[in-house]
Nucleic acid binder design. Structure first.
Lengths: 339, 339
DNA sequence: TCATTTTGCTTAAACGATAAAGCAATATTC
DNA sequence: GAATATTGCTTTATCGTTTAAGCAAAATGA
């Protein structure tokens, strides 16, 4: 009941394995295999239900037709959706995906990279964690193709697919301002990652542009590892005092959801008492009583581009990098009030 | 800049690759390698930053230390969470996960199974689609270990991890009845899959047990492929007439979310006008203005059990099957009103 | 001192597939 | 009909690793 190999077919047909290989990889013309024999071999292969051993093929060819995907957390809907588009796109190109979650942790990230590289993935799609610059540098030295998504490091020449975070954030905040909000808080992650810095930068740009003197105390940062507590504290601080915030801009999906859960418990009415806007979509935001206005990242495009760029790099092997910045859309719903 | 192989180390140390292999797989004692040489080899390996080629190892050993995971849709939070627990659990055992989404489609499922098996996964964790019985039968014939999750086929002897759907559903519906609801509708998928049948069965059990004459028109089924339209139609039908439903039981997460989105647009107040209860959790249900009462499936336990049972089967090779049924918890919140 | 055991290493085959090179037998050319 | 080209196949090496088997040299025992 062992798996059928080329040898079994060869024995059955009374020929060498080489001949079988030529036929089954459709090189029979090139290798001048007799028509009759080719047909016979194909028939035997079908009869025995031959399935090529991918591992052996990989060993020989040095290519595994596997992509390694490292996200922050596959259970986060944003990354789950990305994963889905990458899966689909990879499959179209006869690639499979091995994935891992880094939990925004440098050591886990290094671990995952090692494991995936040892498994001979042909390339990696990575959401890099804070402080993982060296890891990427090492990948470059090892000439292992990779593409960053969601974030990148301005100091490191690497292919990446990202959105124009700064402009998108500025657009979101401008929308709040145009909707009449004056005291706009922002809740971001406490991180040096570039995409978050850019979103913060965009927030500040927009305030400045509209001549709103931004108070430092309007910008709050939550630790990834202590999300709940930090967000509650942040919101408490934003909403207390005699000049409480009248709008909050959340830097991501998960921040918004955690924040809204808490805002709900406070009994604060949205958008009347507080306007809310966020990066990223999510069913939770759709279902919220005041559907949340958000910055849509074109996930399908990001996933497709990531796979495309990666496969190009795998094929090319020149170390040229491709940086793609994609525009977002502001999807306006009820959470900021209507003008 | 090629990858370092055993051969490179062997050359550098002036010994055979066999010796290096013995040392680096910690068989140096058993293979009577000299202490000094062992040390030397280890040092050279470290110096050259040797990383074993997993593919070659797999070819030799016939084991890939890879699990294939087939879910309905990785972008569905339920499956994304399952995937996460499976990933973590697999990693603890030095396994990696290759995944694929079947979209509840038999052909895609067959396709995925083929691809994953050809990639020599050591075993599969599968959410089987409707009509995939033969595929599983074939896996059994090929002696490829697999474990089903979320659903299973009563007619097929296979290991599975599932929850006690019937009792859980009955519990949920009983809760509605005890909360004073009289006309309880159910929205399920149009499928013959056993877990859904069981949930429907549990719904009917509960009605019967409480002497409520169930109207056939209270049970609605939506097609996976036409979710939105079918759910809107179902809800319209449930809520129309002079005796509209006063409660709806959704058979899954995605049904509930799609349903609630529509209910929101109708301006129906929950729980005053309509009680809602569902299988599965989700951030959207937490954030809903009347947080939705739900049947919690212990995802962590399911994932852990799936990996454990699968690895046991991979190790054992006896074709004994393990069926695990796990209890759920009813998490009561606001969506059914309070008593 | 000579036979036996132990030590420390090498050789070689294997996993399954691929592909360059080789080699008869047949077909083509002039 | 002899030289050359083509056809149809086999041989062999290879990818990187593992592991049984083999073989000297050194250590032990009598």
């Amino acid at each position: 009941m062992k798996k059928v190999s080329l040898k079994d077919i060869a024995t059955e047909a009374g020929v060498s394995t080489a001949l079988v290989s030529y036929v089954l990889t459709n090189k029979d013309k090139k290798a001048r295999v007799g028509e009759g024999m080719a047909k016979k071999i194909r028939e035997i292969a079908r009869k025995l239900n031959y399935q090529p051993n991918h591992i052996a093929r990989s060993l020989k060819s040095g290519r595994s037709f596997t992509i390694g995907l490292i996200v922050a957390d596959i259970s986060n809907p944003f990354f789950a959706n990305i994963a889905r588009t990458i899966e689909d796109e990879a499959k179209k190109n006869n690639y499979n995906v091995i994935f891992g979650s880094s939990d925004e942790n440098v050591d886990k990230s290094q671990d995952l990279i090692n494991v995936l590289v040892n498994r001979q993935v042909d390339g990696l799609i990575i959401t890099p964690t804070e402080g993982s610059e060296q890891q990427l540098q090492q990948l470059k030295e090892q000439k292992i193709p990779f593409v960053l998504i969601d974030r990148f490091f301005p100091g490191i020449a690497a292919s990446y697919i990202a959105v124009n975070n700064r402009e998108s954030a500025a657009g979101a905040v401008s929308h709040l301002i145009k909707a009449g909000r004056k005291r706009i808080g922002m809740v971001a992650y406490k991180t040096t990652l570039h995409h978050i810095s850019e979103r913060i930068g965009g927030y500040q740009d927009a305030l400045q542009q509209h001549k709103i003197k931004a108070s430092n105390s309007w910008l709050k940062k939550a630790r990834y590892s202590h999300l709940k507590e930090d967000i509650q504290l942040a919101i408490d601080q934003l909403l207390k005092g005699k000049q409480p915030a009248d709008a909050i801009f959340f830097a991501t999906n998960s921040l918004a959801i955690e924040g809204l859960k808490y805002i709900n418990t406070l009994g604060i009415r949205i958008p009347d008492e507080l306007a809310v806007i966020t990066f990223d979509e999510g069913e939770a935001l759709d279902l919220f009583y005041a559907p949340v206005t958000f910055v849509r990242q074109p996930i399908l495009e990001i996933g497709k581009a990531a796979v495309r760029v990666l496969l190009e790099q795998i094929a090319d092997d020149t170390s040229a990098t491709t940086a793609i910045s994609i525009d977002t859309t502001l999807v306006i719903r009820k959470s900021c009030g209507s003008r």
